[in-house]
């Protein structure tokens, strides 16, 4: 019968201090390739073909050609799958830092 099997871990935790970060003061840098938000850094490259909007599974993107050319991204509908980034023929979409 074993009663104090957790004791070793508990003592270790007590002496080692917290494992969590003090978040707003100390941040973990995101991993490379993190899918944070979809950005179009250079809008002049976009040809407004609308492929991204058609591939989007959650209707987060709307592309209009008339009367004004416009690419619209709705962040709260986006599920960050990256289908648009992959499909873009001009490669003008990319993933960015989620805090932007």
């Amino acid at each position: 019968m074993k009663i104090v099997v957790m004791l070793k871990t508990l003592l270790f935790n007590l002496l080692k201090g917290p494992v969590t970060r003090k978040y707003p003061y100390e941040e973990r840098p995101p991993f490379p390739g993190e899918r944070g938000v979809i950005l179009m850094p250079d809008e002049s490259k976009c040809i407004y073909c609308g492929i991204c909007a058609r591939k989007c599974p959650s209707n987060a993107l709307t592309v209009t050609r008339t009367p004004e050319k416009e690419w619209k991204y709705e962040r709260f509908r986006c599920i960050l799958c990256g289908a648009c980034v992959e499909a873009c023929p001009k490669k003008c979409l990319e993933f960015g830092d989620r805090k932007k």
Binding site: N59, A60, L61, T62, T64, K72, E74, R77
Partner: peptide, 8 residues
């Protein structure tokens, strides 16, 4: 039909 984006 699926609902369009509210922005549009």
């Amino acid at each position: 039909t699926t609902v369009d984006s509210p922005a549009a």
